[in-house]
Design a protein around this nucleic acid. Structure first.
Lengths: 220, 220
DNA sequence: GATTTAAATGGACGATTGTCCATTTTGGTG
DNA sequence: CACCAAAATGGACAATCGTCCATTTAAATC
């Protein structure tokens, strides 16, 4: 049984991490100082050194925490999804663009850390694992779809579809970062599926993901 | 005629801006201090206040400079391109993913500033104008293509194609940011055109942009 | 060549940074 | 209740931050 002692300890640890994420989201990394953090956390100055050994380690733990939260949300959605490739792709795309995942706080945090990734090995590592996990989920789904389509170059197609879809989602996040006030979730989803329905008409066409995305091919 | 006086003045101004960009690229924004900047520039401490009135203004000017350089490169490419929509799209895509535009220095700088955009109005403004200009160029080209294709919903298609293509390019930049060592330019170009050739087979198909991008539709 | 004036210098300055530890507080145990 | 140890406190500390200005340097003008 965990005593009051250890309970309080872990609670404070988490409070510090949340304070970092709040500060990074609101003020950016460069203004996230020790003073700022402990003020938000309502704890004393020494806690950072006590629990994390220093500010840098605390930042790294905050990145880790944020990354894990992202995946909890996405995995939860995937578990609720069906087994077909198109169902899983649709769930991932809609999930990645949903309010729960794509919101001001998450986007601010994620891009703030990305900007520092080049200079912080620990941040780059978590940025990588996050991307790798998502990539595998998407690639699995497209592999099924491409195989069902029976194209000779199914493997190539699945690889490119994965690459392009993830890149597009990444770009949608950037849209949100730069214009959170005018960002249109439904439009973003529709754009992704317009491209996918052109590439896989059988899977993402009329009866597919989007209501008014009938167009498979535009010309030709 | 510009005398030695003014010549040296402008040279030093530029030296400071370049020093900022070098520092941001190599060390990140948080480690780009006044001391770091003047050391790289080989100038004295007071120059920043003299020429820019403070460090913040210097950073803003550096963002402006970097953004303008990006466009000079892209406009130069576009002027060399043909007049058809597909030629212009191809030039933009290849240009945006070319070594000249997409390299370690530019990517590091761009994402470092993006991470701070939320908290610096001046940076956000230049990030916006850069995106808006590119968006217009791409949208013009897709509008021609969609109209030539003669689809009833040409305007909608052009809008979505623009949105999706720009998002994909954005994602490719992120790929480069995270994995500059294993990034494959040709693969990135091929992925973009695999999607585009599915959407516009006549324009980006067999005789179109990519050598082995024959596949218009994968299934169906 | 002497004078004027714009440009550049480099150190002083107070404010703020992150680290660390002597002290106090508090939950757990005998 | 007394004792121990883990947890938390908050200020001291040197280092660094960005700003600013008295002084020096050197180009332009007379």
């Amino acid at each position: 049984m965990t005593g009051k002692r250890q309970q309080a300890r872990e609670k404070n640890r988490l409070t510090l991490i949340e304070a970092v994420l709040d500060s990074v989201a609101e003020k950016g990394i460069s203004e996230t100082s020790v003073s700022e953090i402990i003020q938000r956390a309502g704890l004393s100055r020494g806690m950072i050194h006590l629990h994390f050994g220093g500010k840098d380690n605390l930042l790294n733990e905050a990145v880790k925490h944020s990354s894990e939260e992202y995946y909890q949300g996405l995995y939860a959605l995937l578990n609720a999804a069906g087994d077909t490739g198109q169902e899983r792709i649709e769930m991932i795309v809609r999930g990645d663009l949903s309010e729960e995942v794509l919101n001001r706080r998450n986007v601010s945090i994620w891009y703030a850390f990305r900007g520092e990734a080049r200079n912080r090995a620990a941040i780059a590592a978590y940025s990588d694992t996050r991307d790798a996990k998502l990539r595998n989920m998407v690639h699995d789904a497209f592999s099924r779809i491409a195989q069902e389509a029976g194209a000779a170059e199914a493997a190539d197609i699945a690889r490119d579809a994965t690459h392009g879809t993830l890149a597009m989602l990444e770009g949608m996040w950037t849209d949100y970062l730069l214009h959170p006030d005018i960002f249109d979730r439904e439009e973003s989803v529709r754009v992704v599926f317009r491209f996918l329905s052109a590439l896989f008409p059988k899977h993402f066409g009329v009866n597919g993901a989007i209501a008014n995305g009938r167009s498979k091919r535009v010309d030709g």
